[in-house]
Amino acid sequence: GVTLFVALYDYEARTEDDLSFHKGEKFQILNSSEGDWWEARSLTTGETGYIPSNYVAPVDS
């Protein structure tokens, strides 16, 4: 299955590639091989962008 991640904090995008999000928003991670910045798709907005990996945690299934 796909592991979903949930935002622990609000984040405001600093570049066009970043994804702004709110605490509690859920994400599907598309690429986590880039280190501290993961490519993710928000399940709330459907938008794709980079998120700071230390702002999210796995959702307990």
Rank of each mutant, 00 (worst) to 15 (best):
G1E: 15
G1H: 07
G1M: 03
V2F: 14
V2Y: 14
V2Q: 03
T3G: 07
T3P: 05
T3A: 05
T3R: 05
L4C: 10
L4T: 15
F5S: 10
F5A: 05
V6D: 06
V6T: 10
V6K: 14
V6N: 06
V6E: 12
V6I: 08
A7Q: 00
A7N: 00
A7R: 01
A7E: 00
L8F: 03
L8E: 11
L8K: 15
L8Y: 03
L8I: 14
Y9N: 15
Y9L: 14
D10L: 01
D10I: 01
Y11D: 01
Y11C: 07
Y11Q: 03
Y11H: 13
Y11T: 01
E12T: 13
E12V: 12
E12G: 09
E12R: 13
E12Q: 13
E12H: 15
A13M: 04
A13C: 03
A13I: 01
A13V: 02
R14Y: 10
R14L: 06
R14C: 05
R14Q: 04
R14G: 06
T15L: 14
T15A: 07
T15G: 13
T15E: 12
T15H: 15
T15I: 06
E16I: 04
E16V: 07
E16Y: 12
E16M: 06
E16N: 08
E16T: 11
D17F: 05
D17T: 07
D17L: 06
D17A: 09
D18V: 13
D18P: 01
D18Y: 10
D18M: 13
D18H: 11
L19R: 02
L19H: 02
S20T: 05
S20L: 02
S20P: 07
S20V: 03
S20H: 07
F21P: 00
F21V: 04
F21A: 03
F21K: 00
F21Q: 00
F21E: 01
F21S: 01
K23L: 04
K23E: 10
K23W: 02
K23Q: 03
G24F: 04
G24C: 03
G24P: 01
G24S: 05
G24I: 01
E25V: 05
E25A: 05
E25C: 08
E25T: 08
E25Q: 11
K26A: 06
K26M: 09
K26R: 11
F27H: 00
F27A: 00
Q28Y: 11
Q28A: 14
I29M: 09
I29Y: 03
I29V: 14
I29R: 13
L30M: 12
L30C: 05
N31I: 05
N31R: 07
N31C: 05
N31S: 09
N31D: 07
S32T: 12
S32W: 09
S32Y: 02
S33Q: 13
S33V: 08
S33A: 11
S33I: 07
S33M: 11
E34N: 03
E34V: 10
E34I: 04
E34H: 08
E34R: 10
E34C: 07
G35Y: 04
G35E: 10
G35M: 11
G35C: 12
G35Q: 12
G35P: 09
D36K: 11
W37H: 15
W37T: 14
W37I: 13
W38M: 13
W38Y: 13
W38C: 14
E39P: 06
E39A: 05
E39L: 09
E39I: 08
E39V: 06
A40H: 00
A40W: 00
R41K: 15
R41M: 12
S42E: 10
S42A: 15
S42Y: 02
S42P: 01
L43P: 04
L43R: 07
T44M: 08
T44I: 12
T45R: 09
T45W: 02
T45S: 13
T45N: 14
T45I: 02
T45Y: 03
G46K: 11
E47D: 08
E47T: 10
E47K: 15
T48P: 03
T48N: 08
T48H: 12
T48M: 07
G49I: 00
G49A: 02
G49N: 01
G49S: 01
G49Y: 01
I51Y: 01
I51R: 00
I51W: 00
I51E: 00
I51A: 01
I51M: 04
I51Q: 01
I51H: 00
P52C: 12
P52K: 14
P52T: 02
P52I: 01
P52E: 03
S53V: 07
S53A: 14
N54R: 13
N54W: 06
N54G: 10
N54C: 10
N54I: 06
Y55Q: 13
Y55V: 08
V56A: 03
V56M: 08
V56P: 00
V56S: 01
V56R: 00
V56C: 05
V56Y: 00
P58L: 08
P58Q: 14
P58G: 09
V59S: 14
V59G: 08
V59R: 08
V59A: 15
V59E: 13
V59M: 13
D60N: 07
D60K: 10
D60W: 02
D60F: 06
D60G: 05
D60T: 09
S61A: 15
S61F: 07
